[in-house]
């Protein structure tokens, strides 16, 4: 099973990197350049020392993963490769987990590469002889949240991709989902009465960073598990072609 998952991941990564005849690699370089060099250079020591970086690194893999996961099944269906893949000896779960794993690996890999490069940039430019490092809570939080954020995007994305006839349709659905996820909390909080907002702010400030990270990780882990179970239930080889 693990070998089969690895095979699917190998193919997915090959396809991701060959996307657009090299444009994929260029986009990656730009991305790593922005998050690994430009932003740490601009933000200075805050890039390492502020707990707010947790928010950055939780969101970054989400965007990276949604850019590739839409293609997972909708792309195979659109390019007429799905039926041949389904006619192979690969078990259902190997196909599903291979695709999810490839998207998560891509998102997390690029995120962590940018993270490391950002740390090097921050130390080289703003270190002034002192080694700048993330605090253990923030460091672990970044690793956990980026992994779970990528997992969330991948398992939700694969569900959407399974249901979509085309990649464009899957991308549109995922874009709307991200917009909702991003804007509903922001505008929702804005719409609250001033008194409620103040209370919410106080409650948030009262939470320590460790507890916040643990709560976020628990919520994301539960969402991940739920979505993966839904994707497993949805992925039935004998039904994929008759729909």
């Amino acid at each position: 099973m693990m070998a089969d998952i690895g095979t699917v991941m190998w193919k997915e990564w090959k396809e991701i990197l060959s996307w657009g005849g090299g444009r994929g690699k260029m986009t990656l370089l730009v991305f790593v350049g922005v998050f690994g060099i430009f932003l740490p250079f601009q933000m200075g020591r805050a890039w390492v020392e502020s707990p707010m970086v947790l928010a950055y690194w939780a969101w970054v893999p989400l965007f990276l993963v949604t850019s590739v996961i839409a293609d997972a099944f909708a792309g195979e269906r659109e390019r007429h490769t799905l039926e041949t893949l389904l006619a192979s000896r690969l078990p259902d779960r190997a196909i599903l987990f291979g695709k999810v794993g490839a998207a998560v690996g891509y998102g997390v890999g690029v995120t962590w590469l940018s993270l490391l490069l950002g740390l090097v940039t921050a130390n080289l430019i703003h270190g002034q002889g002192i080694l700048l490092l993330y605090s253990p809570v923030v460091g672990l939080g970044i690793v956990g949240l980026s992994l779970l954020g990528a997992g969330l995007a991948a398992s939700a994305g694969v569900l959407v991709s399974l249901r979509s006839a085309t990649v464009r349709q899957a991308q549109q659905t995922l874009s709307i989902a991200i917009m909702v996820l991003l804007f509903v909390p922001v505008f929702g909080i804005q719409a609250l009465p001033a008194e409620w907002k103040a209370r919410l702010g106080e409650a948030f400030m009262a939470l320590d960073i460790t507890r916040l990270v643990v709560i976020a990780v628990a919520i994301l882990a539960a969402l991940n598990a739920g979505l993966l179970v839904a994707a497993m239930a949805r992925f039935r080889r004998a039904q994929l072609l008759s729909e």
Binding site: K11, T84, S88, R89
Partner: peptide, 29 residues
């Protein structure tokens, strides 16, 4: 499926990959 080979309605090839990589993928499968 583990004992069969199938060329279905469409060739089912990954057009972004090389010919060798297409066969490599199925060889690994």
């Amino acid at each position: 499926r583990s004992r069969s080979g199938a060329l279905l309605e469409h060739p089912g090839l990954y057009e972004r990959l090389s010919a060798e990589d297409n066969l490599e993928f199925y060889g690994r499968i």
